[in-house]
Design a protein around this nucleic acid. Structure first.
Lengths: 340, 340
DNA sequence: CGAAAAAGCCAAAGCGCTTTGGAAGACTCT
DNA sequence: AGAGTCTTCCAAAGCGCTTTGGCTTTTTCG
């Protein structure tokens, strides 16, 4: 059942039927009711391909997915997706993942914009002066950055959590507990979130006349194994740290294992605070020693990003509004006073 | 630059240019070269919306994503996606995720098929006589099932791993080591993979005159916490099992923690074998006691599913071919002879 | 050499929707 | 009553591609 048939059936023109259905004002309310009624009764659904060709709107939001034999998609992605999908569902949006070579995402961005494949995109894991952000900004497609990309000469809309504040608070707590040598096991420090977290720690320490030694900072891909390795390296050196902040629960698994392997204890010998993105399948309170965390639901962020994308598509939101969510510091058993 | 302009530029008709570009035979090779040349030089890219409207083909593969406030996307999904995306990239396919209410996916399947939004779909985590499989089968869109759905009265194409054989082998090994009371901590037993795994264990045990007691079988959502709880429940009962097979590495984390909490040891008191889908961020060899596993890369499966979908779209593959991959049993330190 | 077949190209008709530019009729106002 | 203004609807022109049906021109072959 297409528009023409429906129009014929109602003895109206396609124009009128189309307008009635799309809520244009220049149609009699009585007529509109008749049209909508008939449409519903016959289960008429406008053909999206045709609509897209005519309007250029696709009803989809896009994400360029970096891929490659050596590229692993972050498990955080799936949680973000849960939130995004949940919102998208209730608003009839689809999400299209366009896989791209990790080293050439520009081509893909250009393609999806030129082809008008999606109405909006989001960008995740941004870096300082991220080229993707600059690109979509000039391409003129609605977008939201999940995270921040600093050092660009333009404003852009984003949603981020207060990584700096979170790790600042975490470090402050540890210092208050008497720790003097803190360590940070961070994610890839080319990404802004990691930079902010390091910055936050440095600031908190500086405020107490302390500093974060370079040898006490690790930047690695966030796997259990890397958490383990980093921890061993940290704890086996002279002047080992007595407290560790860790950028992910997954790495924290490795931290805990390493501490145990070294015959040390949490929080007796080492205090630990990790960042928790709130996975349903791995909870900090269930660690052998319940983990203190800086907590922020990445899932909620996904839903919010979807919401704002929808708003931008429909013109309800515009401009370069940045949104920074506070992060909870949740204290559990994994922190204690510094060992004597 | 659109087709008409290109045709005008070449002083040819749109027909000829279109045919030249799409490799139809009724065009002079010399002409074809000229056309392709000009197309490349001017960076002509056919408008996919227009092409889609004309042909009904979208160049996308689809996945209906069950969502809901209480629905968590499985972290396995992201690994599968890595493989799928990697293949899709090299073949210019996009993936569209259509979020659907977990309790009404049919509407969404019908929509994406009726609207011809995608050229093919895949279905994951199937159950016996899965209605989604029956649905897409009757809807007539190319599809592949990742997993199996038994008890339907029709054939369909699928890719699955030999879950039954894997757990059979695992159980056999444990029995050979002298274990008599085995337990299974399984995933949701409404899904085929879980059913197959249980079946495999039962068969192996039966072959030795043993049986898997119902109280030694747990079926839970695969989280760390559920692994922990299940293990405590198992080990705190009379006639506790001396060996556990576990359907996921994530649950295995909880198993290990529970065993430790109970003051028991692996493999001294309890042997453990888990299924490993091969996550880059959590490896069985890195558990405090290296984990024996039944191993199968879900990522490779994703790539293979994409490959077969592409083949089906282009008509290279047809029929209801089922493909079952063998699973490796990798023995590490977590298994030992049964305690006296 | 002439008829039949093949090769190479084109005009035009879709695909199903939105949107522009009116036009007819109803209503308002002086 | 006539001009002007709304209201309500329509015909037709896109959007950019594929594909049908047909028309020349060239090649093939008895």
């Amino acid at each position: 059942m297409n528009l023409r048939q429906l129009a014929q059936m109602l003895a109206l023109s396609q124009t009128t039927v189309s307008r009635a259905l799309n809520g244009y004002p220049e149609v009699n309310e009585e007529t509109r009711r008749r049209v909508m009624d008939a449409a519903k009764r016959h289960g008429y659904r406008p053909n999206p391909s045709a609509r897209r060709l005519a309007t250029g709107k696709s009803g989809m939001i896009g994400y360029v997915l970096p891929t490659g034999a050596a590229v692993d998609i972050d498990p955080h992605f799936v949680e973000f997706l849960s939130g995004l999908g949940d919102y998208a569902r209730s608003h009839d949006l689809d999400l299209v993942l366009s896989p791209a070579d990790v080293d050439d995402q520009e081509t893909t961005y250009r393609r999806i914009v030129a082809n008008r494949q999606v109405d909006a995109v989001y960008i995740s894991s941004p870096r300082p002066a991220d080229r993707r952000v600059a690109l979509v900004n000039t391409l003129g497609i609605p977008f939201i950055v999940h995270g921040r990309s600093e050092g660009s000469d333009f404003e852009y809309p984003y949603l981020d959590i207060d990584n700096e504040g979170a790790f600042q608070e975490a470090a402050r707590l540890l210092v208050q507990l008497g720790h003097r040598r803190l360590a940070l096991i961070n994610g890839d420090d080319r990404e802004t979130f990691a930079i902010h977290r390091e910055l936050g720690m440095r600031q908190a320490l500086a405020a107490s006349g302390l500093r974060l030694e370079d040898r006490h900072v690790c930047s690695v891909v966030m796997t259990e194994e890397n958490g383990y390795r980093a921890t061993r390296r940290l704890l086996e050196q002279d002047g080992a740290p007595t407290a560790i902040a860790c950028s992910s629960l997954i790495m924290a698994l490795g931290v805990v294992r390493a501490v145990r392997d070294l015959g040390l204890g949490i929080p007796g010998d080492v205090s630990l605070i990790a960042h928790d993105d709130v996975f349903p399948w791995l909870k900090p309170e269930n660690f052998s020693v319940p983990l203190s965390t800086t907590r922020s639901s990445i899932r909620l962020a996904g839903a919010r990003v979807a919401e704002r994308l929808a708003a931008r598509i429909s013109g309800l939101e515009e401009g370069a509004r940045g949104e920074v969510w506070p992060v909870d510091l949740v204290v559990r058993g994994s922190v204690a006073g510094a060992p004597a």
